[in-house]
């Protein structure tokens, strides 16, 4: 009898394991959703908006200037709705730029801060905060409630969009991955993290409307530049340059695809 019992137990265990595996293939448990909801109600990212606002108006850098004259496409210092239209073409630089590359340009040109230094400190870590993350969160939050509205009116903007579309679908690198390999159908995930299907408008809208976002596992706010950098790393590709044309092309593609999304920044992510 004891042997029988042992066998039954072993059988039960096996069936539970099979059950568990089956579950793991589907949607993760609802507990994650509850946690996310709690974070969203009291989003620590709000603190980055505060800090970004202070940094934006403060006179800083060798030129002792604020960023109040920074032009995000709506005219110097006009932030309302600016993020909703980015990336866009800027005649002063002759390039299509996103929010972070614009901030970078303003910090270099208005404040005289060393470009290399900003890029080295573009992402915060546990030992050092990043001004870029706070500033980007603040600037983006000034478009809250508005709809993503990338227009691609300039030929260069359409060029960037096309390049972004190409990059999104092109398999590359040692693992032969494209963005679409993970983001091309419903129900995919990395470990427990659900991956949005970015070939579907609704899902891509939740993505572009919610970055910069507070990331719980990083204890900080991350921007779209970091999201793309991290995806790039996950595909084992060479490091994505900060504010590089590749990153801006991808952002152009994603944001245009997500047009109509109601912006709510900072978002909350795992």
């Amino acid at each position: 009898m004891p042997m029988m019992r042992g066998r039954t137990a072993a059988f039960l265990l096996a069936s539970f394991t099979a059950c568990g595996t089956a579950l793991a293939q589907g949607k993760p448990e609802g507990g994650l959703e509850v946690g996310r909801q709690m974070l969203a109600e009291d989003n620590p990212g709000e603190l980055w908006v505060q800090r970004g606002e202070r940094l934006f108006h403060e006179q800083r850098g060798p030129k002792n200037a604020s960023l109040e004259q920074c032009d995000f496409g709506m005219g110097p210092g006009r932030l309302e709705g600016a993020f909703a239209r980015l990336p866009r073409y800027f005649s002063d630089s002759g390039k299509v730029e996103d929010m972070e590359s614009r901030l970078l340009k303003c910090m270099v040109e208005l404040q005289g801060v060393d470009r290399g230094a900003i890029i080295r400190a573009r992402f915060s870590n546990l030992d050092r905060a990043s001004d870029m993350e706070a500033l980007a969160t603040f600037v983006a939050s000034r478009s809250n409630g508005m709809k993503m509205d990338v227009r691609l009116e300039h030929p260069r903007e359409r060029e960037m969009y096309k390049a972004g579309e190409y990059l999104f679908f092109r398999r590359t690198g040692p693992t032969d991955f494209a963005c679409v390999s993970c983001h091309g159908e419903d129900g995919k995930r990395i470990r427990l993290q659900d991956l949005p299907n970015m070939t579907e408008r609704k899902q891509i809208q939740t993505v572009v409307a919610g970055w910069p976002a507070y990331r719980g596992t990083h204890s900080t706010v991350r921007t779209m530049q970091h999201r793309l950098y991290d995806c790039n790393w996950q595909m084992r590709l060479p490091d994505l340059g900060f504010a590089s044309d590749v990153s801006i092309a991808l952002t152009s593609y994603l944001n245009y695809q997500g047009n109509g999304a109601a912006i709510q920044v900072p978002g909350v992510r795992r």
Binding site: E41, D42, P44, E46, L47, Q50, R51
Partner: peptide, 19 residues
């Protein structure tokens, strides 16, 4: 850095949330 404090009244109780 400054805190973010939200206090809303619910009945005779204030719901205080501090970041």
């Amino acid at each position: 850095e400054p805190m973010k404090i939200r206090a809303t009244l619910q009945g005779d109780t204030a719901d205080v949330r501090v970041l």
